[in-house]
Write a protein that binds this DNA or RNA. Structure first.
Lengths: 222, 222
DNA sequence: CGGTTGCTTCGGCCGCGAACGAAGCATTGC
DNA sequence: GCAATGCTTCGTTCGCGGCCGAAGCAACCG
């Protein structure tokens, strides 16, 4: 157990894992950039994370794509973040990308940040979703609403993962929607080109079409 | 975030935190024994864990009692253990206390191990409790059953914490019952003297009275 | 008051491991 | 074929941090 924690406990590796919280598989070089160290150092870190089975590897040509080994790893990282937030206030320089992250980002595979919390608020307000402390459910009205939006709920329901759960947002400190429903909603937003990924990181931008769509469907002013 | 993980990443500190997962407040010397290092080294570790607010301190005479700062810390530790279990199989020597832990132990404030999973199984089997992946609920029949046993559910319900949730058992690899319900049930078992703590650790022994009671109330053969 | 116990602070030793430079393999492209 | 790119392995340096011995406080006890 200490070994796993020690792996996350190194700043470079923590950066790597956070970058992978975006949910996408990234190459070793991209991760080297994210970690802020040279490729050869990164390679060592990736090797350790891989043999400890925190990451899985996909070889493709001369690229090596690394992904988190599964949701349990993401959940662990989130819980560590939560504890870190309860800690003494830390000095953290504000930056451009930091603001973007606060605004909208992916959280493993669903939407977080101001946008994620806003979506959750609207869905709860209209009783499309009921969100408890540890789990949530989509109402009949919510299923219809999301269905009209084009979100594939039946596919989400068939998956072997938790259908709907709250996920504590580390910037807003309020829950957004995770689980299969959160992932399906995020997928649909990508398909509709409402949101787009920024470079290699977790940050998202809302497109003009997204601005319109969110206003029409969710009455959400960005 | 890396700082928090690094704190857990040291073997001595990991031992301290695991010992405190028992839910009780322990003195610095007891924790030194649990960690396997000298008191002065332990003191340094406790200082760090305290300033990082993973632990809280209660001074009582010349003793200093340390406790986990809250359920979020316990939850983090559990999630790290879960990931550690998914990792490559580790060589772990079997010991007497290890067996005791597998058999019955506290998990922060509720019952885990063979006993904890057995209790959960029986409650689910009789539809006294419904347990999902991320949350659970006590049925009307279950409330009556637990009430007759003397478990104070109304008090548990009034608390500001999650009422009933599954907690993945790291030895049995199946869920037992956590949350306020799990804590209330454990409290009652202590009151009835069905179970007793072993020394300073998390391990529990089942008393002869407990053996009878568990058989009569839960048809649980130990 | 000493004496004991519980815990912390100080100082110095030592080892692990993170970091990078350089070189070694693969894969792709011209 | 040669060169470029992507990534890893090797070897070395070096600094952080865990560890303990000794000493310093603080609280109880006679």
């Amino acid at each position: 157990m200490a070994e796993v924690a020690a792996l996350v406990g190194d700043p470079a590796r923590a950066n790597i894992l956070c970058a992978l919280l975006g949910g996408r598989a990234l190459t070793a070089t991209e991760l080297a950039f994210a970690a802020g160290v040279t490729p050869q150092t990164t390679s060592g870190h990736l090797g350790k994370l891989h043999t400890a089975r925190l990451l899985v590897l996909m070889k493709q040509g001369r690229h090596r794509y690394y992904r988190l080994a599964g949701p349990h790893v993401g959940q662990m990282l989130e819980s560590i973040m939560n504890v870190a937030l309860e800690g003494p206030p830390r000095f953290q320089p504000k930056s451009r990308t930091e603001d973007q992250l606060r605004h909208a980002r992916t959280c493993y595979d669903h939407i977080a940040g101001t946008l994620g919390v806003g979506l959750a608020d609207r869905l709860i307000e209209h009783e499309h979703v009921i969100l408890g402390d540890e789990a949530g459910e989509v109402t009949a009205a919510g299923a219809e609403f999301l269905g009209k939006l084009g979100v594939d709920l039946s596919h989400a329901r068939s998956k072997r993962r938790v259908f709907c759960r709250p996920c504590l947002d580390w910037t807003e400190r309020r829950p957004h929607i995770g689980g299969a429903v959160g992932a399906a909603l995020a997928d649909r937003c990508f398909d509709l080109k409402w949101i787009e990924r920024v470079r290699d990181g977790r940050a998202l931008t809302i497109t003009p079409a997204g601005r319109r769509g969110l206003m029409e469907s969710f009455s959400l002013q960005i």
